[in-house]
Each structure stands twice: as C-alpha cells, then as structure tokens.
Design a protein around this nucleic acid. Structure first.
Lengths: 148, 148
DNA sequence: TTTATACATTTGTATATACAATTATTGTAT
DNA sequence: ATACAATAATTGTATATACAAATGTATAAA
C-alpha cells in the first residue's frame, strides 16, 4: 500500500502528514473490509461491537452510558443504535428498577447465536487483514500506535 | 493510550484483534482532532482534502472521477461534497467543453486564501498528534502500515 | 416542601455516506 | 444512421453521525 500511489500525487509528502494519511488509508481499508463481511448479517460494525460488549458483561445488564464508554467510536446517539438491534431481536431493553432514569440493555439468546456466527467471520477477516505481519511486527505496531 | 483501559475490558484481547481495535482508536482520535481544528472554518476534513487536491492541480481543472481517485475516503457522492464547497465560494464548477459528460472543478482565489489559513492550523495539529514520535519511529510506523 | 442542580436518555436537525437507479453524453459496431 | 454499450455525473433512499435541545428522574440545598 504505497501512499503516494494511492492518492495519486507526484510530490513527496512530509513524514508527519504522510503518517497520518497512511493511517487514514489503512483504517478505511480495514473498516470497509469488516463492514463488508458483516453485511450478510445486516449489522454495522458499531452494532457488532455493542453485541460484543453486552456478551462480555455475562448477563449483567448495561445501561447506555457504560455502553458508550466501552465503544470504540464514541457516539452521541447510542439510543438509535440500540433501537436497530432491538427490532432485530438481538437485545432487550428495560427501565432500570432502582433508577428509572437508566435503561438496562441485555443481549438475547438469539443475539448470542448470531454473534457466534459473526465471530468466526470477523476472526477470519482480521487474519486476512494482518496476514503480512509477524507477531513481532504486530507487537511493534501496537507499541507505535500507543504513542498517539 | 492503553487499549484495554480505553475500552474498559478486563480480559486480554488477542494480538490481531487488539491491533485492529488500536488502529480504530487512534484513527478516531486523529480524525476528531483534525475535524475539531477545522470546525471554525466550517469545512469537513473531506472538504479540506478536496481543496488540497484542487490546489495541487495548479489551475488544471479536475473532474469528479479524478477527484474521487485522489481522495482518502473513496466516497460515492463527491457531487454533494463539491456542492458544499460551491456555496461557500471555494470552488468553481463548469461543464467540460470537450466532453460534456464531465465537469471541471477548480479552486477559487477565495478558496486558496482560506486553504492557506487551514494549512497552518492542520500542520500544527498534525505536529501535536505525533509529538511523541521520533522521525525514526514515524518511518517505522509507515513501514508497518505499509503491510496492510 | 419548593427550588435548583445533576444525571440518563431521548429527540430534532443538519450533514454525511453507501448503494442503487437514473440521466445525459459519447463511442462503437453493424 | 441506428442501436447498443460505456462513461460521467447526479439523484433518491436509507442509514449513520454530530451536536444541541428537550424530557424525565433523582439528589441536594434552602
């Protein structure tokens, strides 16, 4: 993935800008690919992440704020995201009895079922995406990303 | 930027997934920051990129397909993006005389003027974002991103 | 108790984007 | 010249998102 070639510029880009453009290009590639493999399930990457978070809570319900905290893309409208999962039957939503301002969101067994299917596909996609990397290189990448 | 801390999980994430999540987190941070510094100009990062591409053509007009090619986020609706720049007076649009299917988009002097202002701000923002990196580390990051 | 403040979520609005369908123009084969 | 395919851009539709404002509930102060 050569940056200059992809964005079709003849001029050499300064290192700092180049790094950031490179980051965007790679993110787009990864994002597009993951979105594509989730397409058959008719869920977005965001929705998939919400389901994963809910499963990670092992039955303990999550309210919207905690959900938001754990999400990769902090977004303001988690309400509508959960709505989508609700109509698909993948999550339940109930008013929290101890604090009626809050809502309690849990994953349904149906949600867990499709999530297991998605897991396999996503795992495979991730492996494809990083197939050029050795473990050592991935460790190195994480160290560098950590500097941002 | 510790991944597990940010997404608030106790369980250790496998290296491959961790790398991808890390990539997303960093991208979000960078994207948010750049969008924020462009906010006062009321242009999106995408619009800024279009202006930069047009300037790079040094007067030579660009049509929508070439514009699309050079954009970081390939998007289907460049038309509407250019519309926004048009109402701001930053670009001109004309039908290509030699091939009336095409349009010719050029940056206006007003567009160039604001672009120069944005350049300074973006340069500064980029330097802030990578301030923890040495040149050598940035080179290394680029090499690793190249593997995607 | 009333009032104010903080909290948690929802809703409204504008913009962004993905994808498909449509329009207009050009090139080409017969 | 006509028909058909290819190209370039635009439009329609559904969904996504950012941001601000509004709603409803709980807590604290006077």
């Amino acid at each position: 993935m050569n940056v200059e070639e992809i964005i079709k510029t003849e001029t050499k880009i300064p290192l700092k800008s180049r790094s950031i453009i490179h980051l965007f290009l790679v993110h787009n590639k990864v994002n597009d690919h993951l979105a594509k493999v989730l397409k058959p399930f008719e869920v977005s990457l965001q929705q998939f992440n919400v389901l994963r978070i809910l499963r990670g809570r092992k039955g303990k319900p999550a309210n919207l704020s905690t959900l938001n905290e754990r999400m990769i893309n902090k977004m303001s409208n988690t309400t509508r995201l959960v709505d989508k999962l609700l109509v698909k039957g993948y999550v339940d939503r109930a008013v929290c009895p101890s604090n009626r301002r809050k809502v309690e969101i849990t994953i349904t067994t149906e949600g867990e079922k499709v999530l297991r299917k998605m897991d396999r596909i996503i795992k495979h996609a991730e492996e494809e995406l990083v197939h050029n990397f050795s473990s050592k290189e991935l460790e190195q990448l994480n160290l560098l990303l950590h500097k941002f």
